[in-house]
Simulated scan of single mutants.
Amino acid sequence: MGGRAARRTGSAVAVCTAAALALGLVTGCSGGAPAPAPSGTRSAQQDVSYFTGLPARQGRPVLAVKIDNVRPARPHTGLGSADLVYVEQVEAGLTRILAVFSSRLPPRVGPVRSARESDLELLRQFDRPALAYSGAQSALRPLIDAAPVEAVPPGRAPKAYERGGDRPAPHNLYLRPERALAAAGDAGAASDIGLRFGPAPEEGRPATAYTVRYPSARYGFTWSAVDKGWRVAMDGIPAATTDGGPLAPATVVVQYTTIRPSEFGDRFGGVTPYTETVGSGRALVLRDGRAYDTRWERRTAAGDTVFITGRGERMTFAPGQVWIVLAPA
């Protein structure tokens, strides 16, 4: 584990209840059931993921995958297995996804697309993760090489990628995560990035649906008591995966931030947006059918992202997959 992770060994983590673990509920817990573990402790029966609050083996490496998200790229593959899903704005007001895997690896993930400068700042929170992407502008490659990531594009890990016959290029490139990590070398293990899991705070208001709009994309989140999560819709169409059914993260964070032009652009003359994830601002957290007005803060690129309630306390998330939608402020 890297030095950043080692410094975090005293950080607080949250666990599902001992009763749930005794029953073998290793894949999920009720949003209001878990209780936070005392500072510096772990579950007596099993380690817990820093990214989901669910039981997971410690020491597993982190793999971030840049995923296409235009209509021809859907439905996705493997996205339901991600611990964290970040939504980022790209050219023409569209979005792409940066999915972070550690607790479990699906056999296949995709479709994979190119990296952006914003990804490098966002991933500084992690302890040198592997980054899988289909390519990048030539001017951006020196920044990727200098960043604290283990880059594994097709040129460095050709056996980790394959083209599918289900849709036309460029929306048919898929990743084999195990092969990507094998080619990544010394990818850092999962460590505390500032998320906290546990019982819901007292404040909050009932919420059944919320919509986030980008210039050319729209995300809808609708609470499902059956799934104990928020059903995702993209551009008005319910989102599902080819290998796991509907997407329904336990917690959705709408992190409002500055999205400004970068120094890069696409081959059609479009300017690439840069999403600032260092700083502070407002955020809306959706969990257990309720909405919580919070603030986010990340003081340095290497620092954690912390979410604070109106009472000045750390916001707790429901155990399970977390979506962080980086929305224009």
Rank of each mutant, 00 (worst) to 15 (best):
T251C: 09
T305A: 10
A318W: 11
R295V: 13
G53D: 04
T241Y: 12
D68N: 12
V109G: 00
W323K: 06
S191P: 07
Y219I: 11
D83G: 05
T272R: 05
L284D: 15
A33K: 07
L140D: 03
P246K: 04
T309K: 00
L54P: 02
G185S: 12
A225C: 08
P153Q: 08
A302H: 10
A20I: 14
A318E: 10
L84S: 01
T257K: 10
I237G: 05
E263V: 07
P168Y: 14
P206H: 02
V109Y: 02
T294Y: 03
A5V: 09
A239Q: 08
T309E: 02
P72G: 06
D304R: 05
T222H: 13
G204V: 06
V271G: 12
L63S: 01
S39H: 12
A217R: 07
A35S: 15
L54M: 04
A139E: 15
R205L: 14
R267W: 02
D166Y: 06
S103K: 03
A183C: 06
G32S: 15
R298Q: 13
T9K: 12
A64V: 07
A19V: 12
R213C: 13
R4K: 09
T242I: 14
Q137N: 13
F101L: 01
V271H: 13
S191T: 13
E203V: 10
A250P: 04
F51W: 05
P206Q: 05
R295Q: 15
M1F: 15
P215F: 02
L175F: 00
P106N: 04
P154E: 08
A183F: 04
L173K: 01
Y161V: 03
S81T: 10
Q46D: 06
E162V: 08
T52M: 14
A33I: 08
G165M: 01
R205F: 10
L173H: 02
A318K: 05
V278T: 05
T251G: 10
S262H: 03
F101Y: 07
T258L: 11
A302M: 12
D266M: 06
G289F: 14
G198Y: 00
A19S: 08
A217P: 10
R213G: 14
V232T: 15
P55K: 13
P249G: 00
R231D: 05
G10M: 06
L195N: 11
L175K: 00
V109R: 00
S43P: 13
T242P: 13
F101A: 01
